[in-house]
Measured scan of single mutants.
Amino acid sequence: RKEMTAACTPRRRIINLTSVLSLQEEINEQGHEVLREMLHNHSFVGCVNPQWALAQHQTKLYLLNTTKLSEELFYQILIYDFANFGVLRLSEPAPLFDLAMLALDSPESGWTEEDGPKEGLAEYIVEFLKKKAEMLADYFSLEIDEEGNLIGLPLLIDNYVPPLEGLPIFILRLATEVNWDEEKECFESLSKECAMFYSIRKQYISEESTLSGQQSEVPGSIPNSWKWTVEHIVYKALRSHILPPKHFTEDGNILQLANLPDLYKVFERC
Results as ranks from 00 to 15, higher is better:
Ile125Glu: 01
Val34Gln: 07
Asp98Ala: 05
Ala94Gln: 03
Glu33Phe: 13
Ile151Lys: 03
Asp115Trp: 15
Ala53Phe: 07
Leu172Asp: 00
Met101His: 04
Asn84Ser: 08
Glu193Phe: 02
Glu188Phe: 10
His42Trp: 14
Asp105Ile: 04
Asp145Gln: 01
Leu121Trp: 11
Val34Glu: 08
Tyr124Glu: 01
Ser141Ala: 10
His32Arg: 07
Leu238Phe: 07
Phe128Ala: 01
Lys131Ser: 13
Leu99Glu: 00
Asp251His: 09
Tyr264Gly: 02
Ser43Ala: 09
Lys184Asp: 03
Tyr75Trp: 12
Cys186Leu: 02
Val48Glu: 13
Phe85Gly: 09
Leu63Val: 07
Val178Tyr: 00
Thr67Asn: 10
Gln76Phe: 02
Ser206Thr: 06
Phe187Val: 03
Phe82Thr: 02
Leu260Glu: 04
Pro154Trp: 00
Leu172Cys: 07
Trp111Glu: 02
Arg1Gly: 08
Cys270Pro: 14
Asn159Asp: 07
Cys186Glu: 03
Leu35Glu: 12
Val266Pro: 15
Phe44Leu: 09
Val234Asn: 00
Glu165Tyr: 02
Gly110Met: 02
Arg239Leu: 08
Gln30Leu: 11
Asn28Ser: 06
Val161Pro: 07
Glu92Ile: 06
Met101Thr: 04
Met38Gly: 02
Arg13Gln: 12
Cys270Arg: 15
Ala94Leu: 05
Glu143Tyr: 09
Cys47Val: 05
Thr66Pro: 00
Glu119Leu: 07
Gln51Ser: 04
Ala237His: 09
Pro219Met: 10
Gly86Ile: 13
Asp115Ala: 09
Trp228Asn: 07
Ile242Ala: 13
Asn159Gln: 06
Ser19Asp: 13
Leu88Asn: 06
Leu88Asp: 02
Met4Asn: 12
Asp105Ser: 11
Ser240His: 11
Ala100Lys: 00
His32Phe: 13
Glu183Arg: 03
Glu113Arg: 11
Ser91His: 10
Trp111Leu: 15
Ala7Glu: 11
Asn41Trp: 08
Asp105Gln: 06
Thr210Gln: 04
Gln58His: 12
Ala55His: 11
Gln215Tyr: 10
Glu113Ile: 04
Glu183Gly: 05
Lys184Ser: 05
Glu71Gln: 04
Arg36His: 13
Asn179Val: 07
Gly31Asp: 09
Leu99Asn: 03
Glu268Met: 12
Gln214Ala: 07
Ile151His: 05
Trp226Cys: 06
Thr249Asn: 05
Glu146Leu: 05
Leu136Ser: 01
Pro261Arg: 13
Trp228Phe: 08
Lys132Glu: 07
Ser191Met: 02
Glu113Asp: 13
Phe187Cys: 09
Ile14Met: 11
Gln214Met: 07
Asn224Phe: 07
Phe44Gly: 02
Phe128Arg: 01
Asp115Val: 15
Ser141Gly: 06
Tyr62Leu: 14
Arg89Pro: 11
Asp145Leu: 01
Lys192Val: 11
His57Cys: 09
Glu113His: 12
Val234Gly: 01
Pro168His: 06
Arg239Thr: 13
Ser221Pro: 12
Leu69Pro: 00
Ile27His: 14
Glu3Arg: 09
Asp158Glu: 05
Leu136Asp: 00
Pro50Thr: 07
Leu172Glu: 01
Glu165His: 04
Val20Met: 08
Ser106Ile: 02
Lys246Asn: 11
Ser199Leu: 01
Ser19Met: 14
Leu255Met: 06
Phe128Ser: 02
Phe128Val: 02
Ile27Asp: 15
Glu193Asn: 03
Glu193His: 02
Leu174Ile: 02
Ile144Cys: 02
Arg1Pro: 11
Phe187Pro: 02
Pro219Tyr: 12
Gln214Glu: 09
Asp251Thr: 05
Tyr75His: 13
Glu37Ala: 09
Lys227Ser: 05
Asp158Ser: 06
Glu182Val: 12
Met135Cys: 03
Glu177Pro: 00
Gln256Arg: 11
Ile169Lys: 06
Ser221Cys: 09
Ile15Tyr: 11
Cys8Gly: 05
Pro223Tyr: 10
Val45Phe: 07
Ile242Val: 12
Gln58Leu: 12
Pro162His: 00
Trp52Met: 03
Cys270Ala: 15
Asn149Leu: 10
Ile125Ala: 15
Gly116Leu: 15
His32Gly: 05
Leu69Thr: 03
Arg269Leu: 15
Tyr264Thr: 11
His42Ala: 06
Ala53Pro: 00
Gly220Asn: 09
Gln76Cys: 07
Val20Pro: 14
Arg13Asp: 14
Gln56Tyr: 03
Phe85Val: 09
Trp52Asp: 04
Tyr75Phe: 07
Cys186Pro: 01
Glu72Gly: 10
Ile15Thr: 03
Thr229Trp: 09
Leu156Gly: 00
Glu183Ala: 02
Gly252Val: 11
Leu172Pro: 00
Asn49Arg: 14
Phe170Val: 00
Thr59Asn: 10
Cys194Asn: 02
Pro10Gly: 11
Val45Met: 02
Ala237Thr: 11
Leu102Thr: 03
Asp181Gln: 03
Trp226Phe: 06
Leu150Ile: 12
Gln30Gly: 08
Pro244Cys: 11
Ser212Leu: 13
Asp181Val: 05
Ile205Phe: 07
Gln51Trp: 08
Leu156Tyr: 01
Lys246His: 12
Lys68Pro: 10
Met38Leu: 07
Ala53Leu: 04
Ser199Thr: 07
Ser240Pro: 08
Glu165Gln: 03
Ala94Phe: 06
Asn224Gly: 08
Thr67Pro: 12
Phe248Ile: 08
Leu211Thr: 06
Asp262Met: 09
Val87Arg: 09
Glu188Met: 05
Tyr160Asn: 00
Glu188Ser: 05
Lys265Thr: 09
Ile233Ala: 10
Ala6Met: 13
Glu37Leu: 13
Pro162Thr: 01
Ser106Val: 03
Ile15Pro: 05
Ser106Glu: 08
Pro10Gln: 06
Pro245Arg: 05
Ser43Gln: 06
Glu231Ile: 04
Gln30Lys: 05
Glu193Trp: 02
Arg173Gly: 15
Leu238Cys: 05
Pro50Gly: 11
Asp181Arg: 03
Ala122Ser: 10
Leu63Pro: 00
Leu167Met: 04
Gly148His: 05
Phe97Val: 03
Pro10Arg: 08
Val266Arg: 15
Leu21Ile: 06
Glu134Asp: 03
Gly120Gln: 03
Gly31His: 11
Ile157Thr: 09
Leu255His: 07
Pro95Ser: 04
Ile200Val: 11
Arg173Lys: 09
Asp262Phe: 13
Arg269Met: 15
Asn16Lys: 05
Tyr62Glu: 02
Leu96Glu: 00
Ser225Trp: 13
Glu108Phe: 04
Arg12Asn: 08
His57Pro: 00
Arg1Glu: 15
Val234His: 02
Arg89Ala: 13
Glu119Gly: 15
Asn179Glu: 07
Tyr198Arg: 00
Leu167Ser: 00
Gln51Met: 09
Pro223Val: 06
Gly120Asn: 14
Phe97Gly: 02
Leu61Met: 11
Phe85Asn: 13
Pro245Glu: 15
Ser225Met: 12
Asp145Glu: 05
Pro117Glu: 10
Tyr235Ile: 14
Asp145Gly: 04
Leu54Ser: 09
Ser221Ile: 09
Pro162Phe: 00
Leu88Pro: 00
Asn49Ala: 07
Gln214Ser: 05
Asp115Met: 15
Lys246Ser: 11
Asn65Leu: 00
Leu190Tyr: 15
Ser216Asp: 05
Arg36Val: 12
Leu88Thr: 07
His42Arg: 12
Val161Ser: 06
Arg11Leu: 14
Asn28Leu: 13
Pro50Tyr: 03
Val178Gln: 00
Asn41Tyr: 07
Cys8Asn: 07
Arg13Lys: 08
Glu134Ile: 05
Asn253Glu: 05
Pro245Thr: 13
Pro107Glu: 11
Ile14Pro: 06
His32Lys: 04
Ala7Asn: 10
Leu23Gly: 15
Glu29Arg: 04
Phe140Pro: 10
Glu268Asn: 05
Gln215Lys: 03
Met101Ser: 12
Ile242Cys: 04
Val218Gly: 06
Ile242His: 14
Cys8Pro: 11
Arg269Ala: 11
Leu104Gly: 00
Ser141Glu: 14
Arg11Cys: 14
Leu63Ser: 13
Leu136Met: 10
Ala6Phe: 15
Ile79His: 15
Asn41Pro: 15
Lys68Glu: 11
Gly110Ala: 02
Glu3Lys: 08
Gln256Met: 07
Tyr124Pro: 01
Gly252Thr: 08
Lys118Trp: 15
His32Ile: 08
Gly46Met: 02
Gly213Phe: 08
Glu114Ile: 14
Leu61Gln: 02
Ser106Thr: 04
Leu69Gly: 00
Gly148Leu: 04
Leu164Gln: 03
Leu96Gly: 00
Glu123Pro: 02
Thr5Ser: 11
Thr67His: 09
Leu129Glu: 01
